[in-house]
Computed example of a mutant assay.
Amino acid sequence: MIEHEFTAALWRWQARDEETSGSWFFVSLPFDVADAIEDETGPRKGFGSVRVEVSVGGSTWRTSVFPSAEEKTFVLPVKKAVRIAEGLAEGASCRVRVRTV
C-alpha cells in the first residue's frame, strides 16, 4: 500500500434530485494520484470504487474513492463530521493523505 498526499479544493455535488442536492461534498484526486491508485489496485468490480484510508488534518477515516466520468478522476467523499472538525467549507483547499486498504 502506497500513501499519496495532495492538496485539493472541497466541492459540493449538485444532484439532479433537489432533495439530495448539496448534501454530498468531495475532493477530486489529481490525475497522477488516480493513475497510481489504478495501477496499485488493478481491475475492479461494480462501480469501480477503491477502499482507502484518508487523513485530513487531525481526522482519519476509512471510505472509498469512486471513479467519476464528469471529473475524469476518482472523487473522495468528505463526511460532515470531518468538515466540521477540520473547519472545511465549500471551496476550501485541504491537504489530503490517502492510501489503499
Rank of each mutant, 00 (worst) to 15 (best):
V52Y: 06
G42C: 00
K72V: 09
W61E: 07
T60Q: 13
V33Q: 09
S64R: 03
S28N: 09
F47W: 15
E38I: 07
S59A: 12
I37Y: 01
S59T: 05
T63L: 13
V27C: 12
D35I: 04
E38T: 07
P67A: 03
D32V: 08
F66R: 01
G42F: 01
S49D: 06
G46V: 00
V78D: 06
S68E: 10
G58H: 13
S55C: 04
K79Q: 13
V75S: 04
E70I: 07
F25W: 14
P77I: 06
L76A: 05
F74N: 06
L76C: 07
I37T: 02
A36Y: 07
T60R: 15
F74Y: 15
K79N: 14
V65P: 07
F25R: 11
K72P: 06
L29H: 11
G46W: 00
I37L: 13
T41K: 14
I37W: 01
V75W: 06
S64A: 08
D32G: 05
K80T: 04
A36Q: 12
D39Q: 12
W24Y: 15
G42R: 01
V33E: 08
G48S: 02
A69T: 09
W61K: 11
A36G: 03
E38A: 13
A69E: 15
K45A: 13
P30D: 04
T73P: 01
V56E: 09
V56F: 11
E53Q: 14
E53L: 10
G58I: 06
T73A: 02
K79F: 11
G42P: 00
F31N: 08
E71H: 12
E53H: 08
S59G: 02
V52D: 03
D32T: 07
K79E: 11
E40M: 12
P30G: 02
P77W: 03
G42L: 00
D35Y: 08
G42V: 01
E71G: 01
E40Q: 14
W24S: 14
F47C: 03
A36T: 03
F66D: 00
